[in-house]
């Protein structure tokens, strides 16, 4: 493998992580001012803030790896739909509180086990970001797992809503573990993590929480994947149009 290929692969690898945090944060931030009560409004805004902070570290690093002088903002505001590499689950519209809870729970559990493993990356920048991120992931997972229990084991209505959300989202979780060549190369050179291990831990956690929340884990009748290659749901274009509007309208300015 040439040095250049590795650099391109590492860039792709880091940008995927950065995009996942950015797009998840962008969606979660839509709750700001609309939460079911003030404390929860604050908690969701706080988590969105953590995700944006994580995205900034990762996109800045991606720009450094690429070596073409692109900043976090160049990467966030001047890439198009096909260049974003986040999982589709991140970009789905915000939905109701049950949908947001289920999405956060699936993603938080993934991030927790993923970054816990990534702390041991031979890439010291990634290891450092992972160590910093892990503390937040732990809190995020505790938060969303508690809400899974409250909604699953709360009222009949909340049980029905969270069941629907879990059923809607489960096909999108397939993608989290749908490794491609870049994942395998990064695992082989000990920069990346072993997705099979993450998947086993994720399954255990998800099954336990669903079980305690008196929720069924639905069978997968279909699956969604493709974000790693920039193949998205139709929602991504609208999300980017909104997020990037001002930078695109007046490019080349300081903000």
């Amino acid at each position: 493998m040439s040095g250049e290929t590795t650099r391109q692969e590492l860039f792709q690898y880091v940008i995927r992580l950065g995009d996942n945090a950015l797009i998840n944060g962008q969606r979660l931030a839509e709750w700001c001012g609309r939460g079911p009560f003030v404390e929860e409004d604050i908690a969701m805004t706080n988590i969105a803030l953590d995700l944006v902070g994580r995205a900034r570290m990762l996109l800045t690093y991606a720009g450094e790896v690429e070596g073409a002088g692109r900043t976090e903002d160049d990467l966030a505001y001047f890439r198009n739909e096909r260049e974003f590499r986040n999982f589709q689950i991140m970009e789905l519209p915000v939905g109701d509180f049950a949908f947001t809870t289920a999405r956060q729970f699936f993603v938080d559990a993934y991030d927790y086990f993923y970054y816990r493993a990534l702390q041991h990356s031979v890439d010291s920048t990634l290891a450092g970001i992972a160590a910093k991120t892990l503390k937040e992931c732990e809190y995020h997972l505790r938060h969303s797992a508690e809400w899974m229990l409250r909604l699953g084991d709360g009222t009949e209505q909340s049980h029905a809503k969270i069941s629907t959300a879990v059923a809607e989202l489960m096909p999108f979780t397939y993608e989290l573990f749908d490794a491609d060549g870049i994942d395998r190369a990064m695992q082989a050179n000990q920069i990346g993590v072993d997705l099979n291990t993450v998947e086993a831990l994720w399954n255990e956690k998800v099954n336990n929480v669903l079980d305690e929340a008196t929720l069924e884990r639905p069978e997968l009748k279909y699956t969604r994947s493709g974000g790693r290659q920039g193949l998205h749901s139709e929602h991504i274009g609208y999300l980017l149009a909104e997020m990037q509007s001002l930078q695109r309208a007046m490019p080349g300015q300081d903000w």
Binding site: P36, R150, G154, T155, Q157
Partner: peptide
């Protein structure tokens, strides 16, 4: 919109 969420939290507690 948050009423059912608050009710669920109370019921669970």
């Amino acid at each position: 919109d948050g009423a059912w969420v608050r009710e669920a939290a109370l019921a669970y507690a």
